[in-house]
């Protein structure tokens, strides 16, 4: 260890993290990060001692989990990007960490909940696993399945999968994910139905009580007919197809100019 003081703090951190004391963990993390920076381990360069690196990685991993437990997503993002250096560039020096794939999986779920599908796929491609064995890893398979179901529209599967999270932390994302899919379903219903009975709408949108549904319907501007127990979706009147005049003119002028160059 770089300094005995850091070692002491590290031990305290492990204890407080295991006991689930979020506040104390946060305080310790802040002090440890300063310590790591002074020891030149936070963003390692050169050839530091592998054991020190393992400790630094552990601290950052605890930090990442801690950020999720305190629901601080930007902080998770920071910890995770710092960890990537350890996972990618020092993978030959360090023993693999048991928390690596849970964290990578969490990062994928985070990208999904933020609807950053392109980033999700880029990250997926850069995982250090052969592509056809991705689904064999439970931590990675979970976000992959979620994404597939979201894309094809099997929302009920997503809903059912919320209890199958491979680690505790995945559940922290469930709420925002449910919000996302509820909005997705709602926009599909607007397009696909003329009207829906209240009860069916509640099941489709995974609402347990009608009152939740009514508030949600009001937010989206649906007409709720309580007497007939039906929701009428505001039919978007056939949108007039606007002829994009300016674009057409611009395009035509462009052709004229090009043709002139040719002739």
């Amino acid at each position: 260890m770089a300094s005995p003081q850091l070692g002491q703090l590290y031990k305290e951190l492990q204890q407080s993290f295991l006991s689930g004391n979020l506040q104390q963990t946060g305080v310790l993390l802040a002090r440890l990060k300063i310590g790591l920076t002074e020891a030149g381990l936070l963003v390692p360069f050169g050839n530091p001692n592998p054991q020190d690196l393992v400790v630094a990685r552990d601290i950052l991993e605890v930090g990442a989990f801690w950020s999720i437990r305190t629901k601080d997503i930007p902080s998770f993002d920071r910890y995770f990007s710092q960890l990537l250096t350890f996972y990618n560039d020092y993978s030959s020096v360090l023993p693999p960490s048991p928390r690596e794939f849970p964290l990578r999986g969490l990062n994928l779920v985070r990208l999904l909940t933020q609807n950053r599908i392109a980033d999700f796929h880029t990250t997926l491609e850069s995982l250090p696993l052969p592509a056809d064995s991705l689904t064999a890893n439970p931590y990675i398979a979970h976000p992959i399945n979620l994404e597939q179901w979201l894309m094809e529209g099997s929302y009920s599967k997503v809903w059912n999968a919320r209890e199958e999270a491979p680690t505790e932390e995945y559940k922290f994302f469930v709420d925002s994910l449910m919000g996302t899919i509820r909005n997705e379903i709602a926009s599909c219903e607007e397009a696909a139905y003329d009207s829906l009975p209240l009860k069916d709408a509640a099941t489709l949108l995974f609402f347990k009580s009608t009152s939740d549904l009514v508030t949600f319907a009001q937010q989206r501007g649906w007409q709720v007919d309580l007497g007939a127990e039906k929701i009428h979706f505001a039919k978007k009147s056939e949108e007039k197809v606007e002829i994009p005049k300016e674009r057409l003119i611009a395009a035509n002028l462009q052709y004229a100019r090009e043709l002139e160059q040719i002739v």
Partner: peptide
């Protein structure tokens, strides 16, 4: 070869919203 009717309903709904097909679902 979908797993359940429920899925089918969501999937069709999504297809309609994404403009893949023109149509409606009659839930009842």
């Amino acid at each position: 070869h979908l797993d359940s009717e429920e899925d089918a309903e969501y999937i069709v709904g999504k297809a309609i919203r994404d403009g893949v097909i023109e149509g409606r679902i009659v839930h009842e």
